[in-house]
Design a protein around this nucleic acid. Structure first.
Lengths: 203, 203
DNA sequence: GACGGATTAGGACGATCGTGCTAAAATTCA
DNA sequence: TGAATTTTAGCACGATCGTCCTAATCCGTC
């Protein structure tokens, strides 16, 4: 029973450490030290480092699904929901500057390692992609929904990458400026869709 | 004298391997095996792994400077030069799908490792940034040049990240489609700048 | 209070890492 | 050709990695 708590604590800590230092650069001992647990104790909960990674990814998948569901419940219009996605860059600004995007950096690393869990990590990205796609469909943009989703995903990934690299060498307010541009792009896209729909209905 | 050739061959090979597998995940032995050289021989040319990385980055910096200079010499209009940058995504499409952007992935990795050569790697990004910025200045967009440069840099980074993650799971022609959009964005930006300039001149 | 499963502690293991030495071979130059 | 220098090969060192075993401890249940 108590092991459940320990296990969860391990996963959460590993999650944080993997994010901050990268998966490969985080050792078994690093996690053990952080959690204040003997290394042998680890073996009871996880048979291998890969197994921890798998658990971390599962946790992230669950958290992401919950977050997306909440955005969907909270946002009245599809635009508002997509805004929630964009504003993630602002909400996690400090972390992103230091460690980049948790999803993007993990996928990039696992790709280079040819790691077995690569597909599961990509599923994280796919979660955002398909969710965004659905929102664009709600906006009446069925035909271009996936393209638009990928476009927005790419832009946020790029912003995160540069924010991490340049940190404070980037011009002041880089992230905020890009976020504003994405807002403008979204408004433009949404209103164009709406007027097209109205024109179609009036025909 | 012959050592010069060996040294260059080592650096080029390390460059390739670092790109494909990542810096940390590429061992001394990996490079030695690839170059078909004894491990001890390495120590003659490079005293440490960090030293190889430094040499690799210097090589990339030099190559990048040459490439940018060539683009600047070849392209008549600033738009054409910026197009060369954008079209890099097409020219290196196969590699990017497999290994991502050489610059972006290196910067991301070194950031997580807190590596000493991080600043030098960032210099690579900065090279593109300042070069692009100069092109936008040539377009008559002094005030927004750096913003536009960062914007374009971010978009290409994002495209590379998603291309690598999704590989063939991305919708067909994702990269090409995004490149086309960047072309359109550039044309729009450039012509807007030109008409603004003409209006200013006619005043 | 004793039993039994769940949990923990600590250390040992083989492998691989980056590093560094020394002696031999190859090359250069007088 | 011969001496000096550059270049190479092979091996060994200590550290750290992921893995894994065994014994001790906790804790709920009868």
């Amino acid at each position: 029973m108590k092991g459940k708590i320990t296990r969860e604590y391990i996963v959460e800590s590993a999650d944080r450490l993997f994010y901050q230092r990268g998966y490969e650069h985080t050792s078994f001992s690093d996690i053990a030290d952080f959690v204040q647990i003997s290394k042998g104790n680890f073996y009871y909960h996880f048979k291998s480092k890969d197994e921890i990674l798998a658990a971390v990814i599962q946790l992230r998948l669950e958290n992401t699904r919950n977050m997306l569901a909440k955005w969907e419940a909270d946002g009245e219009r599809p635009e508002d929901r997509i805004m929630s996605f964009i504003d993630m860059l602002i909400a996690n600004l400090a972390d992103i500057k230091m460690y980049g995007c948790p999803v993007g950096t993990l996928c990039t690393e696992l790709a280079k390692l040819n790691h077995a869990s690569r597909a599961e990590a990509n599923e994280l990205l796919f979660l955002f992609r398909s969710w965004l796609s659905r929102q664009f469909v709600s906006l009446g943009l069925e035909a271009k929904a996936d393209e638009l989703a990928m476009h927005l995903l790419a832009r946020s990934q790029g912003v995160a990458t540069l924010a991490q690299a340049f940190q404070d060498e980037g011009y002041e307010g880089f992230i905020k400026h890009e976020v504003e541009q994405m807002h403008a792009w979204l408004s433009c896209t949404a209103s164009a869709a709406q007027s097209a729909q109205e024109a179609g209905a009036g025909r």
